[in-house]
Design a protein around this nucleic acid. Structure first.
Length: 496
RNA sequence: GCUCCUGUGGUGUAGUACGGUCCAUCAUUCCGGGUUUUCAUCCCGGCGACCCGGGUUCAAAUCCCGGCAGGAGCACCA
């Protein structure tokens, strides 16, 4: 080998590439990407991939991201008015900055209708009044439908009828003329706009003709100067259809990248419309119900956006259909939050004992100083005022001699905990406990598939605030969701 | 059925354009050990993969051909 190919010997051992693959045809400062969700509900964990990949590429190339609401369907997937603001906000939460440009398709209807008219006027689009099934039949045989041969003037007349609402829903569509011999039947004379008389939640009944995704998205990408489109590979045919349209208009289609289908083990398959109906039926408390795979739910549970970001970047962009596990995301999250989460004691199944100080009375302090983080990564201590009683987790009461963590060795007898020494004298069990007076009733909500498991106990009531994420010693990370007026703390379990 | 995409350990992922220390990278899971006055976190170690069959070549995860498997699209949804 040294003779045939000496360079081969120089080859280094491979390393894993970090970050996203470079984009083709990308100029620093000139990259425009877009993230285009349907505002028919808030974002899910799958959308997170789109936000992360697009915003990361924009960051890498000092480019821009257009947040575009593709809300041109009033009936099958009607937009949810509140969702627009949720999505903008969730985008910012994840990307770390707001989108550079925000576009709402339904506000830009005149533009799309104009291009449609131009398309008809220039003869590469036509109004088709065949039924969907009639058309499909002809299309599958590469035959043109009767409407295709009509004059531009006839088409423009029909177009006007569509626009003013004279033609019923389903009565006509506008098609883009393509080569009918195209190998892929799905691309032949594809539909660009259809009639919808159902009022749009945002703009009302102003428009009777609405563009379909392939048309609206194609026009808008051109208008915004999008240079790179990253989309699911289920939209590969969209790319092909849109490229045909671009050729008609004389435009250049953006670079396109794809990702495969993503399933999350813990959530199985789900859809926004499915969740929407389950929520309205009361199966879930709302879009942020902790059992749901929505971004709002993950956020409510206390996930750090950086964890999601690192996770999706590590996965990168592949066209493989994948099945991921929340465990991996949780692992990214742990490494990010562990250093900044304070520890608190949470005693489940508490058993109370009287403290018997015995002969050591004079040596026992009135309060203990306990570190906020075991590695001293967080300054200051938690102050535990000792009362006359303690609560110990029942599980730890199987022995008579135990050590109260960070405090003293005790001997348990007849409901009393008799202090034997402050120093750890032997290898006895270290018990989990909390002094009386420091406790507050708490309930931990653990999402578990379709259920929420409730774990009751006593939480260490030291500097707790709503919204803070702490690590419950022995249990795992949790978020203080609500401190109720009846002195009950509601907590949400994050992960171990 | 037609059109298209994808196959690297349990799960993901790097490497594949241009064949060569690649007996294959990294993470996660799992198993074992260690640290810890938390059963959490953390640290160390280990198991574990190039879909199959041919071909080209001194040399194939990488190139060619043929299979097989999985997925998507074929909506007047996005």
């Amino acid at each position: 080998m040294a003779e045939t190919n000496p360079e081969a010997l120089q080859r280094q051992k491979q390393k894993k590439r970090v970050g996203l693959k470079p984009l083709t045809n990308a100029i620093d400062g000139g990259v425009v990407l877009r993230f285009a969700p349907n505002p028919n509900g808030p974002l899910t964990i799958g959308h997170a991939r789109g936000i992360v990949i697009n915003s990361e590429y924009a960051r890498n190339y000092s480019g821009k991201v257009v947040l575009r609401f593709d809300d041109t369907d009033t009936r099958v997937k009607p937009p949810l008015p509140e969702a627009y603001a949720w999505i903008s906000e969730e985008y910012e939460w994840l990307a770390g900055r707001p989108a550079d440009i925000t576009i709402i398709a339904s506000e830009r209807m005149p533009l799309y209708l104009n291009y449609a008219k131009q398309m008809i006027g220039d003869g590469f689009g036509y109004v088709c009044r065949c039924s969907a099934s009639e058309f499909k039949k002809l299309r599958d045989q590469s035959r043109s439908c009767p409407c295709r041969e009509r004059s531009v003037d006839d088409n423009l007349n029909d177009w006007e009828s569509m626009i003013v609402g004279e033609i019923k829903e389903g009565g006509a569509v506008v098609r883009v003329k393509t080569n009918l011999e195209l190998a892929n039947p799905a691309l032949r004379d594809w539909p660009a706009l259809r009639i919808q008389h159902t009022p749009h939640p945002m703009v009302g009944d102003k428009y009777k003709v609405w563009p379909l995704l392939d048309f609206q998205s194609a026009i808008e990408d051109h208008l915004q100067g999008v240079t790179h489109i990253v989309r699911g590979k289920d939209l590969m045919d969209s790319t092909r259809k849109q490229t045909l349209l671009y050729e008609h208009f004389g435009w250049i289609y953006p670079e396109t990248l794809y990702w495969g289908r993503v399933k999350v083990h813990e959530f199985g398959s789900f859809s926004t419309s499915q969740m929407r109906s389950s929520i309205s039926e009361g199966d879930y408390s709302g879009w942020d119900d902790i059992r749901l795979p929505t971004l709002s739910a993950l956020r409510k549970r206390g996930f750090d956006p950086k964890a999601l970001k690192e996770f999706w970047i590590d996965l990168g962009l592949t066209q493989k259909d994948i099945s991921i596990s929340m465990q991996t995301i949780e692992s990214f999250n742990s490494s990010i939050i562990d250093d900044k989460c304070e520890r608190r004691s949470f005693v489940r199944n508490p058993v109370s004992f009287n403290i018997d100080k015995g002969e050591l009375t004079s040596k026992i302090p009135e309060s203990l100083l306990i570190s906020r983080h075991p590695d001293e990564l967080i300054e200051g201590e938690r102050i535990w005022n000792l009362g006359s009683k303690i609560f110990v987790e029942q599980e730890d009461c199987v022995y008579t001699k135990i050590r109260l963590k960070d405090f003293a060795d005790v001997f348990i007898e007849d409901g009393n905990a008799i202090i034997e020494s402050m120093e750890k004298g032997d290898r006895r069990l270290i018990a989990h406990w909390i002094p009386e007076g420091m406790e507050i009733n708490a309930v931990l909500h653990i999402p578990n598939g379709n259920d929420i498991e409730l774990v009751h106990g006593l939480l260490e009531n030291y500097e707790i605030k709503e919204g803070m994420i702490i690590q419950l010693e022995r249990v795992g990370f949790a978020k203080i969701d609500e401190i109720q007026e009846d002195n009950l703390v509601s907590m949400i379990y994050l992960h171990g």
